[in-house]
Design a protein around this nucleic acid. Sequence first.
DNA 1: TCTTACAACTACAACGATTTCGTGTTGATA
DNA 2: TATCAACACGAAATCGTTGTAGTTGTAAGA
Lengths: 347, 347
Amino acid sequence: MKQKPTLKVIAKELDVSVSTVSKALRDSKEIGEETKNKVKAFAKLYNYKPNNIALSLKNKKTKTLGVIIPEIVHHFFTTVISGIENYANEKGYNVIVGLSNESFKKEVINLEMLANGSIDGFIISVAKETLSAKDYHHLYETIDQGIPIVMFDRVIDEIECDKVIVDDIKTSEKAVQKLLNSGCKHIGIISTKDYVSVGRLRTEGYINALKSNGIDVDKNLILKIDDKFNSDDNLEFLEQQIFDYFESNDVDGLFAVNELYAITAMKVARQKGLSIPNDLQIIGFTDGVLSKHAFPPLTTISQHGFEMGEEAAKLLIERLENTDDDEEAFKTTVVKTDIIERETTKL
Amino acid sequence: MKQKPTLKVIAKELDVSVSTVSKALRDSKEIGEETKNKVKAFAKLYNYKPNNIALSLKNKKTKTLGVIIPEIVHHFFTTVISGIENYANEKGYNVIVGLSNESFKKEVINLEMLANGSIDGFIISVAKETLSAKDYHHLYETIDQGIPIVMFDRVIDEIECDKVIVDDIKTSEKAVQKLLNSGCKHIGIISTKDYVSVGRLRTEGYINALKSNGIDVDKNLILKIDDKFNSDDNLEFLEQQIFDYFESNDVDGLFAVNELYAITAMKVARQKGLSIPNDLQIIGFTDGVLSKHAFPPLTTISQHGFEMGEEAAKLLIERLENTDDDEEAFKTTVVKTDIIERETTKL
DNA sequence: TCTTACAACTACAACGATTTCGTGTTGATA
DNA sequence: TATCAACACGAAATCGTTGTAGTTGTAAGA
């Protein structure tokens, strides 16, 4: 086992000073050609690489980004991470991932654990529990300590920071409009409780679309699922709610604010003998593997998670590397969405 | 913006020495009660938290684990990460994620980037490109530098390190046996090329099961897909291969070595008018969202990714914290598998 | 011959924390 | 009164690296 060499051991070995080695490797003109070559050759031979931790301490920069998300077993979030990683690596940054599991407490712990020097900035999608409790002190404190935050997807309006979102309202309007155009008369929505910002906004878009088409909004057609926790755990509960919804409502078009709701709705509809898309057309928000491989393949809204991740990383790194200390204004990037037409909607 | 206080500023503020502050906070008996209380109160007030980077430098331990996986938009891998995170966080460790995207080069870069002090140890599932190129120098070098590696899922036999695997052979035997028991006469397998260890082993299990039932192995029934890259990208290619396979072979039972192959096979079978499970029974390896929500729901083998992650983290952390320098022998943990019976198989 | 300039290097401080080894004061004991 | 232990604290080294500020030695210029 050969330990990584340090400047010190190289210096001793070559009988020069540590500073000389450091400078030689950084190609400083203070050092003579001969010595430089000698040092470089030696360093290469022993595969010297500067110690990141020491550099971090010195530079007060870790070149790593902290990403905190509610869950990782989730297509959208992993797509975003992918985008973050991609951009971050290009710029020489690493990515530490922290999972909140939708828990406020875990989110706080993760944030504090990483805020002690481990990372230069955060990219966060806030936990549902945080959203419903409206306790944002940990976020304020982090920002107050000079650690920049970029929020994506689930965003808190009142916090001033960079944000990457999708125009949930407009996109939802577009989706519902498509349903309308395809002949749907009674369009329902399966959404989340209002404390989840994206759920609230998508519901708003749904309502807007109906109104602008002169259709009265029937509150019964708006189903707001309450799932504070990982939705995979209470699938039966979800199914039951959707089942009841179908029992008491007669819809021919359905807009679901996420993939799981859409897929589950399809399943329940199938149980009830409904034919998709003939009896019922469905559009889901967020495109994932489920939609793609569903039967029939689900028409969805692509949020372009990869681009969102890239954009978030870009905003963060730009802020980190902006040395002219005239504080740049916070930006909110709106990533475009697309409707991916598959087979749960008619043309 | 209030910067995080350091020991130095606390010391200056309270007019004591840095050492005194440090000791007071660590409750050393060298420091008088009065001073201790004063320091602690002040530290609490200003929310002092020791700087992780400084600690890492001093202790030569970063308390972070490096996880390198081929892709993150993948149910199995995210489940494993979940398990790793869970165990690691419990033990006070953080997790840095690096993606190889199945590329040898990116794997090497990631490894080297993190091996320079950023992490204490690695958890790796090797990229397909690395596997097919059989170039493992980066792994050997890492281990040689004293950085422990734990491999999971895609494992390299000849490298000595801790490993977490599933008994691919036995599990596949079990699956094929189940197909046999359910009345299948002509069982096929959709596998990967042999350089992917798990593909090779699962094929081996398939062959074993047939042989031990006195059935001749028909090479034509073994389809080995070649996908060096992200399988999502060449879905049509996959479909085409499976389509051709069905054209030239008549099977009533199918064992697929991963979820995507199974789901795609179902899709192709449906196109060909086959009824599942009446005309064709299918079992897929690796349980994910797709299987659960497929129509009909797919019978699969659960690999218990979460447990695999926990186990990998456990092995790694145990090795890291094992201070008695009698090198512990390398362990290979075999995580149990289960067949999750859903609706693509008969009882 | 004495500056002066320059090349080529070294010493030292600093980043933030811990830890070992002192050191000065107090009170008790011989 | 001299000695010593206990107590409470401080100085300095250390981790690995970099940047600034010296410190040499040599050669050119006056």
